[in-house]
């Protein structure tokens, strides 16, 4: 049953803010349909690209008659083709994401919806998926502003509860989506088997990949006291600790090195990495941090 979130995923203020943005990719991909984006292909648009000699079969409409009058040569004027962008949001919906206030999953959903909305209004091809989807389960492809409600419904329906390793989930994603484009992977990267394999799939898939690691405030600054038995919500693994200042210090160090490790790993492979805290409003994350990272502008 779909959980009705107390807050709408996208508030009117956020929508108004997002209207001004567009998704950016450093790589130029081939789109499927005409869009608002320049493509590698030359085509029909108002933006001039080049001249070339006419060869039989070319569209006569493209001849530059002015040049013909001057040079008596048939020259075709080439224009840049504008195409759509493939935008994927991949949400980690494991149990571990169902923590924090708002939960990390809520946060991820909101972020994905916001970015998806940006894609929709710029006529990009938007697809929002979760890790748990099997190779055959595909999410709807959304296009155009009118698809916003469908997108929101789809995002709202995402529930926590699946347990699948990161690597498996990303592999399935790559199998499902052959097309290249921009992939935003929203996860906490907390996988006992490591996140490295999963991210390597993105690299090999040659997508423009953004990894947004969402951590809750409780994870970054745990407020634990006394003798505790910590139970992992995913695999019921137990860690016995006695909270103390040195222990917490050590935790901070470990967390920092974990985050730093992920950052290094990503930057070495051309993956954008961003650490997000669930207390940071999505508006700010999108408007400031992501803009600075070059995902939107």
């Amino acid at each position: 049953m779909a959980k009705i979130s107390e807050n709408p995923l996208l508030s009117p203020e956020l929508l108004a803010q997002l209207e001004r943005l567009e998704l950016v990719t450093r790589k130029v991909f081939r789109g499927r349909m005409k869009g608002e984006r320049r493509s590698k292909r030359k085509g029909q648009s108002v933006e001039f690209a080049d001249f070339r000699n006419y060869v039989p079969g070319d569209d006569l409409r493209l001849l530059d008659w002015n040049l013909y009058a001057r040079l008596e040569k048939l020259i075709i004027k080439l224009f840049l083709e504008e195409e759509d962008l493939h935008f994927y949001a991949l949400i980690d919906s494991s149990m571990s994401m169902d923590f924090g206030s708002p939960t990390k999953l809520e946060y991820a959903k909101q972020l994905a919806a916001a970015l998806g909305f940006v894609g929709l209004i710029r006529a990009d091809r938007v697809r929002i998926e979760t890790l748990a989807q099997g190779p055959a389960e595909r999410s709807p492809i959304l296009r155009g502003r009118h698809s916003m409600w469908r997108m929101l419904q789809h995002v709202e329906a995402i529930q926590p509860g699946e347990s699948i390793s990161l690597a498996e989930g990303v592999k399935n994603f790559c199998l499902r989506n052959a097309g290249r484009g921009v992939v935003v992977f929203i996860s906490d990267l907390m996988d006992k088997e490591g996140y490295e394999t999963a991210l390597k799939y993105f690299v090999s898939h040659q997508v423009d990949c953004f990894v947004i690691q969402v951590l809750s405030q409780e994870e970054q600054e745990p407020e634990v006291k006394g003798d505790l038995k910590l139970v992992d919500c995913e695999d019921q693994d137990v860690a016995e600790i006695t909270a103390s200042a040195p222990l917490l210090n050590r935790y901070q160090q470990t967390l920092n090195s974990f985050v730093k490790g992920a950052q290094d790993f990503c930057s070495r492979r051309g993956i954008h990495y961003l650490l997000a805290n669930n207390q940071l409003p999505v508006e700010e994350l999108v408007a400031n941090h992501l803009r600075r990272r070059g995902l939107v502008r």
Binding site: M97, D232, E240
Partner: peptide, 19 residues
């Protein structure tokens, strides 16, 4: 010890190992 559910004991295990 009081049980406390956490998102992941991943980091905690590493901390305990260090200590």
């Amino acid at each position: 010890r009081q049980p406390l559910e956490v998102p992941s004991t991943y980091l905690w295990h590493r901390v305990i190992e260090d200590l």
